[in-house]
Design a protein around this nucleic acid. Structure first.
Lengths: 162, 162
DNA sequence: ACTGAAACGCAGATACT
DNA sequence: AGTATCTGCGTTTCAGT
């Protein structure tokens, strides 16, 4: 279980992760050493997975988001050399591909990619995705406008595995 | 434009954002004050958008990811009170919904949601999404397994708007 | 735009409650 | 699991280059 204080600390860090420990302590009204101990514990328990810098995709010429459904022939893949990487592993290694999911009911993978423009998307599909062994077909949805995009989710005290 | 040193700093912060400034300075071989100045500048330029803590969804009972296509009747919405929030604004305010995109070619919205289980997904669809004015239908894909999920993207010196 | 010095504030350890 | 205290170290400002 996780208590109100730790929840509070996590909420503060979700707003702005790169702030001094004392500042967190002030906001929760505790001694810095106590807060530090709690944060260390949350990290060790795997509740806190890490700290990331959020970069502006626009500024790095990554304006286009696309979702790609990849129809994979799994029988073909399992029949080949078992030592070789599976399609999803190869895809996961490509830096433009941010997400690789197995989805239910469609017998395929769903990718989220972030590229500069439609030309780069075309290149990625033609040169890196379609030629993969086991890939039967792809279907691509490009994003026109993004209204919301966050990794945050509501946090509450109901913790599992505690 | 952005130079090699700033690129280096950003890469270090992408690995672990909550590290001391001196540590970054050591890794890039510069004085802490110089690194601080660069980071402040990157923040002010909007290249660095913020710093986030990465929380483990498993530990907060958010095991299920779903992608939901929401077919929206835009004519109906524009005919109603123009002051009222649009469907995508209402959806964007729901904390379980992490992403709201307009997608090309389907005349609909694509949502990414993160919930506890299929029951919670059902509740979200039935009580919060389908009743919205203008929502014609929804189609949901649930994720069976996630092979990769990151917000990182390759960064290079080719900056725009500089 | 970077270095180095100095003042200040924080981190992390310890002892104790 | 908390506070109080202390030392060493990091942060931040500023003058100089």
């Amino acid at each position: 279980m996780i208590d109100e204080i730790s929840l509070n600390i996590l909420n503060i860090l979700q707003e702005k992760a790169r702030i001094p420990n004392v500042e967190v302590a002030r906001q929760v009204g505790m001694a810095p050493s106590a807060v530090l101990e709690r944060i260390r514990k949350l990290e060790k328990q795997g509740i806190i997975d890490g700290y990331e810098v959020r970069l502006n995709p626009e500024q790095f010429n990554r304006r286009l988001i696309a979702f790609i459904f990849v129809d994979v022939d799994t029988t073909l893949v399992s029949a080949s050399d078992p030592d070789q990487d599976r399609v999803h592993d190869i895809l996961a290694k490509m830096p433009e591909i941010q997400e690789v999911h197995d989805v239910a009911g469609e017998d395929c993978l769903l990718l989220k990619v972030r590229v500069a423009d439609h030309q780069e998307l075309g290149t990625l599909l033609r040169d890196n995705i379609r030629p993969l062994q086991g890939v039967r077909s792809t279907r691509t949805l490009t994003v026109l406008f993004t209204h919301k995009e966050t990794t945050r989710f509501p946090i509450s005290g109901i913790l599992t595995g505690q």
